[in-house]
Design a protein around this nucleic acid. Sequence first.
DNA 1: GCCAACGTTGGC
DNA 2: GCCAACGTTGGC
Length: 153
Amino acid sequence: MKSEPDCFSIDDLAKAPKKTTCWDGVRNYQARNFMRSMEIGDQIFFYHSSVEPACLVGVAEVVKKAYPDHTALDPKDDHYDPKATPANPIWEMVDIKFVRKFDESLTLVDLRDVKGLEKMELLRRGSRLSVQPVTAAEWKIVNGLAEKKATKR
DNA sequence: GCCAACGTTGGC
DNA sequence: GCCAACGTTGGC
């Protein structure tokens, strides 16, 4: 899951009440559908976008399954969608909880050219999805890299 | 700040 | 239902 750290960083998540937040504001159907498919206990990588360097910074987990995103119904909210109604909220969100922060963030450069990550959505040219799938194999490789980079420091 | 790559919108 | 125009994302 991507977030601009200026807006909401992994440190914000770690400091949040119960280290938990609702992932509101997603206004892309594909991203929403991925959230709908999430189960409690599913782990996610937390990604900082639009910063130099863009990087994976840690891990969180799903603590609440997809439910309506109320910010879509609020005309005063930045993410207001006039098409959303209480009967058909259209947009949904999940709650995620902080699990850990990597000792060393993994930049896109770190991940590029790693064997087994060739098809990772995050590394795809023009990848803009804010919620995107990670395969079990990719998950394992990335976690391994995070440990390796931390010990190498 | 540039610009490629998207998703969305709306005229037809 | 096509597709051009437009707005946005996000790496660089």
